[in-house]
Write a protein that binds this DNA or RNA. Sequence first.
DNA 1: CATTTAAGTCAACATGCCTGACATAAATCT
DNA 2: AGATTTATGTCAGGCATGTTGACTTAAATG
Lengths: 162, 162
Amino acid sequence: MAPSDDVTRTIELLFFAYRAFTHDPDAHLESYGFGRAHHRVLHFVSRQPGMRVADLLDILAITKQSLAPVLKQLVDKGFIEQHEGAHDRRERRLHVTAAGARLSDDLKALQAQRLETAFASLPAPTRAHVEAFLFAIIDEQDREAVAALLPDVASGGIDPKR
Amino acid sequence: MAPSDDVTRTIELLFFAYRAFTHDPDAHLESYGFGRAHHRVLHFVSRQPGMRVADLLDILAITKQSLAPVLKQLVDKGFIEQHEGAHDRRERRLHVTAAGARLSDDLKALQAQRLETAFASLPAPTRAHVEAFLFAIIDEQDREAVAALLPDVASGGIDPKR
DNA sequence: CATTTAAGTCAACATGCCTGACATAAATCT
DNA sequence: AGATTTATGTCAGGCATGTTGACTTAAATG
């Protein structure tokens, strides 16, 4: 096997796996007239209620002009609410409504189903290895910010070599 | 830890990791006036020289109307060549040119760098676990076709439980 | 009071995907 | 041979998601 076959296989698996991973929510979102961009907003607002617009832009790494129509649609259709900041009234603190929480949970359930089925079919250490790998793929300078965002790892984490 | 924290962490890691994974090639492609769609075409044609347009459409899961402008640009700029099929002259067999092979290799090197650095920082079994996971994420009905496409696994594969 | 900050808006544009309809040439079936 | 199917290409129109640049508004801060 050529030396680059390993990396080719990983690259192609990532492509096909990520497409599968996003497929179910994409299909579900269609019935609401929403797309993947709406999913991302809903997910992170649901995960961090009260976040500011600027925080969301940082996480998504898009411009406010890109976010604007997506956020407006989510607000107009009653999935997200904006509240004036308590201490700084320029801020629009973002919250999911009950409907938004429901949709966000439904979308997560679709992805959870796929991920948990995969993990259940594989040996127990898989999850820790996979998470360590995914984390190591992220730019070193971004890892701290991402780690601060993620739910804590329970245990069995794979530590990077020194 | 809430039961859904695990899946939330995996979902978010996949999002951030995939964004990082595509970032370097995206940036490199910009200087050619190309996008991610061109990368995918270049990659698969390079991997399977002589493939037909219909094969490419199947793999990418897009319509020929979506592919057409992307393929035309790659042909016009001298990265891909089309040759009449030897046995069936309706077919346009796709091949990368020398320049196409070079660009494809350059893009792969960027992703290889990221992946291999990640694997090198982690215990040896990581690669097998990661690949088994990515494969298990793919729809069961698509796995056979994907497996046929991928370079063979050398050894140390993680077998799914029965 | 001047400046900065948070957010929103308007315009123009590019990419990458879609559906639908139709065209062409070559292979295949009857 | 003639009809049909197949492989590919093309035209038209549309939608989602992103970009840059310029500007506005309101509120906080120096």
